[in-house]
Design a protein around this nucleic acid. Structure first.
Length: 270
DNA sequence: ATATGCACCTGTGTGC
DNA sequence: TGCACACAGGTGCATA
């Protein structure tokens, strides 16, 4: 579910309520997530204080006062919501963590593609092979062009490859390529330096706009207060197959690239 | 080494 | 109404 704008929105919201709070209870109702929740999970969290909350790629990292990190990934359908201690858990609420101010954090994930574990930062292998952050300067036109030039796959698959650049998933890949005027099926080997520059500029513009809208809510995504984002109202191409392009009026198309839907305007994107 | 396919899950919408 | 099927904000492992 969440891509960078959704995870970052959650990070900001959770930071204001959870930093400084101490864990008073941990209940795991279902251990079968993408990886089995370790039997040591509860003990690793119990009694710890949250010192900071960071984001890397689509992962949330909660720094604990003993130096360990509580790592969360949301898969396709995961959410984290802050609720009163009395709130009932839902069918797919798999983990409930209580804090010393009486609030609880519910991890809800119907499809169970999410991840929840605690470990030393250096031992969290999920973070090892991640690429550059798309809103940092290291994601530059020269970097993208050089990387793209060495490969010949569809550019959309490159933008979604977390080993190169992180945080961009299926929604934002289509939206970024529309903003850049590049067709998602374009071979990376045929990207010009100017194309790369437009993709980098479009990436920061689209992600910034999505962050300002507090992310996209199609079905599952909610922020830490249970509120949906608003960027789905501003989709230019995603899930708009058959509708007219807002820029030129031509009908938006859907195609499949590496097994995922891609949406584009056949006139605005070449 | 690099690129694709498929598996992991549940829920929802569509068409017969 | 029931059923089959396609599809959904992701990722990691097997396979070509």
């Amino acid at each position: 579910m969440p891509e960078l704008p959704e995870v970052e929105t959650l990070r900001r919201g959770l930071a204001t309520t959870l930093v400084g709070r101490r864990v008073t209870a941990v209940t795991v109702h279902e251990r079968r997530l993408r990886r089995r929740v370790a039997s040591s999970f509860e003990a690793a969290l119990l009694g710890r204080r949250i010192e900071a909350i960071r984001r890397r790629a689509k992962y949330l990292l909660l720094d604990l006062d003993d130096g360990a990190v509580w790592l969360v990934h949301f898969g396709m359908s995961g959410t984290l919501v802050v609720l009163p201690a009395t709130a009932p858990r839902r069918v797919h609420t798999h983990v409930v963590v209580a804090f010393d101010d009486g609030r609880t954090l519910h991890f809800h994930d119907p499809r169970r593609f999410g991840l929840m574990r605690v470990g030393r930062a250096a031992a969290l292998s999920e973070l090892d092979a991640l690429g550059v952050e798309p809103l940092e300067e290291s994601f530059s036109a020269s970097f993208l062009h050089a990387t793209a030039h060495r490969q010949r796959r569809a550019v959309k698959s490159l933008l979604m490859d977390q080993r190169l650049v992180v945080g961009i998933g299926n929604i934002y890949a289509s939206e970024i390529l529309f903003a850049a005027g590049v067709r998602p099926s374009r071979r990376t080997s045929r990207l010009s330096r100017a194309d790369a520059a437009r993709i980098v500029a479009a990436t920061s513009a689209v992600l910034a706009e999505a962050l300002a809208a507090r992310g996209s809510s199609i079905s599952d995504y909610r922020d830490e207060r249970g509120e949906p984002g608003a960027f789905q109202k501003r989709f230019r191409v995603y899930e708009r197959a058959g509708a007219p392009c807002a820029r030129c009026g031509v009908v938006i198309r859907r195609t499949v690239i590496v097994g995922r839907s891609a949406f584009y305007c056949p006139r605005c994107q070449r």
